[in-house]
Design a protein around this nucleic acid. Structure first.
Lengths: 219, 219
DNA sequence: CTCGTTTTGTTCTCCCGTTCACAAACTCCT
DNA sequence: AGGAGTTTGTGAACGGGAGAACAAAACGAG
């Protein structure tokens, strides 16, 4: 067990590990649904698609939740990881930009089932303000401040065109949002203390294309 | 300049650099559209959201395309990066799974404008086979082999539910696809030589939630 | 032609993450 | 109770990437 610097749970989990915890969580959920009670690090690593040594080291940052010679209690470990990530509570989320992608995100069932609740869909286009998507009605972007204040929203999703993204981000930051998931193909600049994660569909394809090209060359 | 091991362009570009090249490409395209002729590594780094030293090191893997004391010719550098990634040619792509996300992907203009051409939309559900999405008609999943063979498809996109993903991947691999972009929340196992990249929406949100929780704790 | 200025390309150092390998700890069987 | 067999947790070695810092190269002024 490492030393705890400040409060009760002030451990220092490496970023690479944080990024894998949700993968383990999903694998454990699958195991629970399959009725599995216990699993070894080898089993779980296989289900998560990683090396078993890496998995054990990752889990060791959370504490010592396994039993040597036996393995991990699936349900117990699942709860511990969920608690560590923070998905035992519910996170209200706003989505800005209800185009094709915004529609898909609003309808994505994986959000609600994993601790996220879409509390508002916002779009700058007044023509969209009549629509109801996934049970939530689309509202004006100018309602952002009010919604964030009322619902205590900390996480915002940007699914607008690239040109609008920085403006949306600025408005989000101004009214207190501190975590942004950006699907627009543009680089956002935000003040310190605000986290931005970027998902870029065409970049992923371009990375594949690079490797594909290399395969073709060496053949 | 590093030694070249085998053929004309057999450099060894680090994976981290490959992942950033598309970002540079996009930043350069923006600069071209703004009419900029030349830019320094500092300028381009700012536009791409990275450190200028990192940018220069990344570019040095491609060759020596800048001029000391001057900077980079925007258009020339843009072409060189595009060629290195392989997006000067056109890549035919199939998308499997035309739900909400599949729709959004099919309609995403960023694909076509960046060297990717959606040649087929496939879905297992016969009810969808009438639809036309983004000018491409939805066909039966069983047509996969024929389409891949006819069009020389090397890249496949999976936008199905999690349960179907592995089966789809297996079929793709079997008929010669060697690069897969997976949006389904499941771990794919594929043989060596096949590249898989995964985009998982809820994992990104969970990573944000973790940091958000930590902010709340320390406050 | 020479000197000062600008900016690239590269070397060097440091840090983070991955992997190996093994001791500690637990179970089960005799 | 004791020993064999398992499996976790972790120390240590290793590799790759990030960033600072500098030498090399181009340009312009005088």
């Amino acid at each position: 067990m490492t030393a705890r610097t400040t409060s009760e749970t002030a451990r220092d989990i490496p970023e690479a590990t944080v990024a894998r915890l949700p993968v383990y969580l999903r694998a454990l959920t699958t195991l629970v649904e399959a009725g599995t009670q216990t699993c070894s690090s080898e089993d779980l690593a296989a289900a998560a698609g990683v090396n078993s040594a890496k998995l054990r080291k990752d889990l060791s940052y959370l504490g010592s939740y396994g039993t040597r010679g036996v393995g991990y209690d699936v349900d117990y470990l699942r709860y511990q990881i969920a608690r560590e990530i923070g998905v035992t509570q519910d996170w209200p989320v706003v989505i800005v930009g209800i185009g094709n992608l915004g529609h898909a995100l609003a309808n994505y069932s994986g959000f609600r089932s994993r601790g996220f609740r879409v509390v508002a869909l916002l779009d700058a286009d007044p023509e969209r303000h009549d629509e109801v998507v996934a049970g939530v009605d689309v509202r004006a972007f100018d309602d952002l401040e009010q919604i964030v204040a009322e619902q205590g929203v900390a996480i915002g999703v940007i699914a607008t065109p690239a040109l609008a993204a920085q403006d949306v981000a600025d408005r989000m930051v101004a009214c207190g949002i501190t975590s942004i998931l950006n699907f627009a193909p543009s680089v956002l600049s935000v003040p310190d203390g605000v986290d931005v994660r970027k998902v870029d569909l065409s970049i992923e394809l371009q990375i594949l294309a690079y490797h594909e090209q290399r395969k073709a060359q060496s053949a």
